[in-house]
Design a protein around this nucleic acid. Structure first.
Length: 729
DNA sequence: CAAATCGTTTTTTTT
DNA sequence: AAACGATTTG
């Protein structure tokens, strides 16, 4: 076929990678160096030039978004549907694999997936059953422990119990969790991968089939793979298959959930014949942005080393704004965005606000709302994670599999139908002692007449209700089932009456669930298997977009993590403060600190034309007023590339202490100090004016001094001098 | 048994 | 500050 069409748009390094002969390749691809493009072109090359059949290609990504994007671009390039090619996320593909081999893997045919929240609840139930105190055995921590083991490929029986009492107990809980999970016919996220791996390990025949089939395996974001994922890849590749791994150690930001950057080094050791290609030319950002990002990341000792460069001009300096508090920060950002949109011809969706933690989005949303600028928030609560949706899904799960205890507990009494804690305790007791599900326990107890009449009646009605729905669940009309279920079970009624102001929203979401089911049905048409189960798996694996795309042109708000892989002409990187970014939970540990720095690097390299970085001198955090110092990352940028911005419209700043919009200068007749202004005190050194109160001789101002913290000073006594601006270290 | 209140805890990122 | 859980009240 036409090789030139595939190779011409590429630079030398990209071309080398795309047209390499079969064999193992490691592409170290810097931010904005055309990583996805290389992957897509490689696939096209394999198919059109090397004549590899589509079903011989396996392409794995990490997120659903990336998978969709890759599939779309491959299809666009090839001009035909993707056919038998496997393109998807690790979890998605593993799920597909297990559905096909459920028998071999010893799973129930309608096994369901436990998402993070389900898993958390299950851990809690296990703890309760074991009569352990949650204060002493925090469920979050247990969940973390379990996932860590699983991500490393370790089942309870692989663990050494003899270490200490604590570990022994943890392993005990892990064991209980596993049996409860298996009893319910459930797999958690890690199980999807682990079970696939175990199946491939124990069944050479199956392994061989896949090894023969997938001669070419491409991996995106290789630095994010964990131990099992890497093992899985190696296994499928076997001796014959070619691995094409694309990654960037500087963008490894998922260490906390088991990702192992070391896999990049391991790869080179495990496959000594590996050809390494570096993509260092950046097509995204200006010179200044790249220089700053390079300088920042150079502070990480453990990296493979790489320097991005561009043919682009230096561009604008990086602009840094020191807000005096978080409200001012939001105001500044929104003001700038408005300016760019109104006067410089930017579209709103070309502007992105990136932050470290989800909670930070709220202030920006409020500011945008006030300014009547449309926006779109990514992350946060996703569609399938909403309470009402989870309720409805739990019903669906229960209908498909009454032994699903998690679903049972969630909905037996939602909406309330007179089944309270006491009754549930009876059920749990029976379930525990007979080793059966809550559903079975309910049936037993009814049969034995061992329930108090009132509770017994309620349980009986509940059982009948679920059975009733179960009867209709065989037909493939997903949307119909869902709609009927929501009505029959009383959820619709429940939320309609529910008067917390969100009832209407919830009803709308439930309606939307029906729509989603209908659309899913259409996509499903050609596939076999039970539609309900597939739908539920879909809900767990793809929690769905946070907001519909229908909002069109809006400012984009997201966490740094979800910004990976995206780019924006205008980027506002906000909240660059010690404690927030780097986050206080990571600041102590050098390894995690490096990851925070990479996160910052990721954020910076999202910017194409202009980058703004902001921090606040004071911030309300966890209900307290904090006075964080500027992030150490700020001082790692080359000072010559930074331009300090004095907030436009200082005169209109609100005084957060009084809520009054004032002139912003303090004390009448006294040399005015602006909020946010830098001042020097003979004893405390340099600081920043945070707020003021009072007038004349009683006027006080609060100043945040580096090292000393925030102090209230009486203006007439404190010998404060204004300091001319210069960037702090 | 359900609803309301009170006190407590928890604050990162997500397939 | 908000969300959660335990406790008390109806």
């Amino acid at each position: 076929m036409d090789a030139s069409l595939i190779l011409d748009p590429l630079n030398d390094a990209q071309r080398t990678a795309v047209s390499a002969q079969a064999g193992n390749l490691l592409i170290l691809a810097g931010a904005g160096s055309g990583k996805t493009r290389v992957l897509v072109h490689r696939v096209a090359w394999l198919i059109q030039v090397e004549r590899v059949p589509a079903w011989g290609v396996l392409a794995v990504t990490f997120t659903n978004k990336a998978a969709r994007e890759m599939r779309r671009r491959i299809e666009e390039m090839l001009g035909i549907p993707i056919g038998g090619m496997w393109v998807g996320t690790f979890h998605g593909l593993a799920h597909r694999f297990l559905r096909a081999h459920w028998q071999d893997a010893g799973l129930s045919q309608q096994f369901q997936i436990l998402d993070a929240d389900d898993q958390f609840r299950l851990v809690k139930r296990v703890l309760k059953a074991m009569e352990l105190d949650e204060a002493r055995w925090p469920p979050r921590q247990i969940q973390g422990f379990i996932n860590k083991q699983k991500d490393a490929g370790l089942r309870p029986q692989h663990l050494d119990t003899g270490v200490d009492f604590f570990t022994e107990k943890m392993i005990g809980i892990y064991r209980e969790y596993e049996s409860a999970r298996a009893r319910g016919g459930l797999l958690d996220f890690a199980d999807l991968l682990l079970c696939s791996l175990e199946l491939l390990r124990t069944r050479p025949d199956i392994l061989q089939h896949y090894q023969r089939r997938f001669q070419h395996i491409l991996i995106d974001e290789f630095q994010d793979t964990n131990a099992i994922q890497y093992a899985w890849l190696r296994l499928i590749a076997g001796q014959e298959g070619s691995l094409f791994a694309v990654g960037d150690d500087d963008q490894s930001i998922y260490g906390w959930r088991g990702a192992r950057v070391e896999n990049i080094q391991s790869f080179q050791q495990d496959y000594p014949d590996t050809q390494v290609v570096r993509l260092e030319q950046n097509y995204r950002s200006t010179g200044n942005i790249l220089t700053a990002a390079n300088a920042l990341i150079a502070n990480n000792p453990s990296r493979l080393g790489k320097n991005l460069w561009t043919e682009d001009s230096d561009g604008e300096p990086i602009r840094r704004y020191a807000a005096f508090n978080e409200v001012d920060e939001a105001r500044f950002v929104v003001e700038r965005i408005r300016h760019f949109v109104e006067h410089e011809g930017y579209r709103r969706d070309e502007c992105a606000i990136l932050y470290r933690t989800t909670a930070q989005s709220r202030l920006f949303e409020e500011s945008l709302l006030q300014a009547r600028i449309p926006y779109r928030v990514y992350g946060g609560l996703r569609f399938f994670e909403r309470a009402e949706i989870r309720d409805a899904l739990a019903y669906l799960r229960l209908v498909g599999n009454p032994d699903d205890d998690g679903a049972f507990e969630r909905v037996v009494n939602t909406p309330t139908r007179g089944i309270g804690e006491r009754t549930l305790e009876l059920l749990r007791g029976r379930a525990r002692q007979s080793g059966i599900s809550l559903w079975q326990a309910a049936l037993d107890l009814i049969e034995a007449g061992e329930l108090p009449p009132r509770a017994g009646g309620a349980i009986q009605r509940f059982v009948a209700l679920i059975r009733e729905q179960g009867r209709s669940s065989l037909d493939p009309d997903l949307a119909g089932i869902t709609r009927r279920l929501i009505e029959a079970v009383g959820l619709a009624e429940f939320y309609r009456k529910n008067k917390d102001g969100k009832g209407q929203d919830r009803i709308e979401n439930l309606d939307q669930l029906v729509d989603t089911a209908a659309r899913f049905e259409l996509e499903l048409e050609d596939e076999e298997g039970d539609p309900l189960g597939t739908f539920l798996a879909h809900a767990a694996l793809e929690a769905g977009e946070t907001q519909g795309e229908d909002l069109g042109d809006g400012v984009q708000l997201m966490t740094l993590h979800s910004a990976k892989g995206l780019e924006f002409p205008l980027v506002f990187l906000v909240g660059l403060e010690e404690g927030l970014f780097p986050h206080s939970l990571s600041a102590e540990d050098p390894v995690r600190l490096e990851e925070e720095r990479r996160l910052c690097y990721v954020g910076m390299t999202r910017a194409m034309q202009q980058l703004f970085v902001t921090h606040a001198e004071s911030r309300r955090l966890y209900g307290r007023e904090e006075y964080p110092s500027p992030s150490r990352f700020l001082s790692e940028f080359p000072p010559s590339l930074i331009e300090e911005v004095r907030g436009g419209g200082i005169a209109r700043r609100g005084n957060p202490a009084t809520g009054v919009w004032g002139s912003g200068s303090v004390g009448s007749g006294i040399e005015g100090f602006r909020l946010g202004q830098r001042v020097r005190h003979p004893k405390f050194g340099e600081g920043v004016v945070l707020r003021s109160e009072g007038e004349g001789s009683s006027a006080r101002i609060q100043v945040n001094f580096a090292g000393v913290g925030a102090k209230w000073l009486v203006l007439t006594y404190a010998r404060l001098e204004p300091v001319s601006e210069h960037p702090r270290t």
